[in-house]
Structure formats: structure tokens, C-alpha cells
């Protein structure tokens, strides 16, 4: 067993345990903290794949910005186990079904995945210069379209905020 495999297993176990922790913990603060741990484990996986840029952007965007906002909102509303409303049976049922559908999608994607990409040999596609070349040459139109999508979402958020 080489080092890479050992690290992979450690990270995988941490990621899975923390992901389970996100859905099982009663306190929303603990959920968010578990989710942050999961993000870190996944960033570790990116590093193992030699995708440093992806790893650090994952940390900055998800752990550093989005999760801070999550934590912020939860703290501001002071949500905890006592004040959380009891969810109806219907909501739980819908949750199980949507989770199951997501699982099927992930399984289908895994089944179709190219095994050559998983062969463990290092590729430099995740380094920032290569990623930039690909994004701004090959995928320039989808990239710009998604940025327009983000902009419209931002404008929408501002509009909703203005109404009150």
C-alpha cells in the first residue's frame, strides 16, 4: 500500500463520516461545522489528484465564503434544536425520494465514468495555467454564459431585498 492510497482512505473515511454527521446532528451549527470538515476532506482529494487550484478555490469559495454565510444566518436567527419546528411526515418522505434520485444520478455518472481517468497517474490538468487555457479557449462560451447567470442571480437577490 503506498502513501497515496493510505491518505485517500483516511480522507474518504473523514469525508463520509462528516457527511453523515451533517444529516444526523440535531444542532444546525454542528451540521454546518461537519459540512465544513467534509469540504476540507474533499479538497484533500483534489490535492491528491494534483488539482491544487481546484482544491484552494473549493476552500475559499465553499468553506471560506458560503459556509461563513450559512453560519452567520444560523447564528443570527439563533436556531437550535429546541426552536426548530417539527417537520411533517410528508417533508421527510419528499427528502428520502429526492435523496434517492440524486443517488441514482451519481451512480449512473460513476458507471459511465472513464476508468482511464481514475488510473492514479498524475495529470497536470488541475494546475491553474492549464485550467485557464481550457476555460478561456475551449469553453469560453459556457464560461461566459454561466457568469451571466450568476449576474442575473445577483440582480434578482438585490431586487428581492429592495422590495422590503
Amino acid at each position: 500500500m503506498n502513501w497515496q492510497l493510505i491518505i485517500f482512505w483516511i480522507l474518504a473515511v473523514i469525508a463520509l463520516l462528516c457527511a453523515i454527521g451533517v444529516v444526523t446532528s440535531r444542532n444546525p451549527i454542528n451540521s454546518v461545522l461537519f459540512l465544513i470538515m467534509t469540504f476540507f476532506a474533499i479538497a484533500g482529494h483534489y490535492l491528491l489528484l494534483n488539482a491544487q487550484f481546484l482544491a484552494v478555490v473549493h476552500i475559499i469559495v465553499y468553506a471560506g465564503a458560503i459556509m461563513v454565510l450559512f453560519l452567520f444566518v444560523i447564528m443570527l436567527m439563533n436556531m437550535n434544536a429546541e426552536t426548530e419546528p417539527q417537520k411533517s411526515q410528508l417533508v421527510r418522505f419528499a427528502g428520502v425520494i429526492s435523496g434517492g434520485i440524486l443517488l441514482i444520478v451519481v451512480l449512473a455518472a460513476l458507471k459511465k465514468a472513464d476508468p482511464a481517468l481514475m488510473s492514479g497517474k498524475s495529470s497536470d490538468i488541475g494546475l491553474i495555467s492549464n485550467l485557464g487555457q481550457v476555460l478561456f479557449h475551449e469553453f469560453i462560451v459556457p464560461f461566459e454564459l454561466s457568469s451571466v447567470l450568476f449576474l442575473s442571480a445577483m440582480v434578482g437577490a438585490v431586487l428581492i431585498g429592495k422590495k422590503n
Binding site: 491544487q52 484552494v56 461563513v68 494546475l127 491553474i128
Partner: peptide
Amino acid sequence: DVNIGILFIFGVVSL
């Protein structure tokens, strides 16, 4: 000497 030094600093600061 990582090739994403600035982003590393930025990431740690945001944490």
C-alpha cells in the same frame, strides 16, 4: 513554493 501561493493565503485568511 506552491504555484498558488496567493490563493493559499487568501484561503487561510478566509478561514
